[in-house]
Design a protein around this nucleic acid. Sequence first.
DNA 1: AAGTCACTCAACCGCAGGACG
DNA 2: GCGTCCTGCGGTTGAGTGACT
Length: 315
Amino acid sequence: MGRPPCCDKSNVKKGLWTAEEDAKILAYVAIHGVGNWSLIPKKAGLNRCGKSCRLRWTNYLRPDLKHDSFSPQEEELIIQCHRIIGSRWSSIARKLPGRTDNDVKNHWNTKLKKRLVKMGIDPVTHKPVSQVLTEFRNISGHGNSSEPFLRNFKTEPSNNNSILTQSNSAWEIIRNNTTSHESYHNSPMIFTNPTSSSEFQTTTAFHFSNHPLNGTTSSCSSSSSSASITQPNQGAQVFCWSDYLLSDPVLPLSSQTQVVGSSATSNLTFECSSQKTASKASGTCHSASSFVDEILDKDQEMLSQFPQLLNDFDY
DNA sequence: AAGTCACTCAACCGCAGGACG
DNA sequence: GCGTCCTGCGGTTGAGTGACT
């Protein structure tokens, strides 16, 4: 059972705001200040949802907002921030005085993303598209582009943007070419750590072509500046990935409790720079850890290594 | 001039988390 | 601990508008 609606939607006005409605909001806020948005429509004489009033104030009426176009410096900052933290628009907007998260989000989606695509840069990973595709091919271990999920990666040599005209990014193509089950069983899943900068960006790909559910073995690889690209089955350290599947409702328990390490049944490897992770991964399975724990560990590791990078953002 | 298309951006939606009783 | 309310957030939608045919 979901939450009840914040207001009677059948009786509230929707759509664009009139100057009169704006004036009512401004007058009310000037006297009473912001807050208690659910009461404002009634008190200010507006036939609007309180949430809508808050949004109108936050995104348009606030006196500290800029309404001019984005400067090149602001655009550069958005791109840099997006590269580091991804689509956390509110955090990015806090770096841009006078801009709202909605402004930043819209500007990214309508201008900056397309600009990067035109430049041949994947707007998700902020890497050159060619590099993303090369890494994908390498990581997947499927150099043969006749693989169904790789067909879209065939590019016209004369048109560097041919891929991206079909979708927003190589990342999306990868996602779009996999159903949820395909991604589990047949296709690589690539994760980009949103808290990493360009220099420290970590792209991790898990290749489940030999998922236990298929009755065979599994492979996994990770690539980053601090963790070099490792082809499946070539990793130096054994990664007990099945630990992370213990609570996976999709998988039968018997398939999830695969033992690796000395076991020959798994070829899965995971190379990483974290000593903590490495020690955890070497030999013994750490069944108490979870995938989330691993990500948090990674965040902590990054925080300790590059505190000045992450201090700029609110988490 | 009229119709179509593409783009922009204001606004909406649903979800999550915190505060509070 | 639980339910409710409020607020913040990110994704998505659709009206408005200009460019193009």
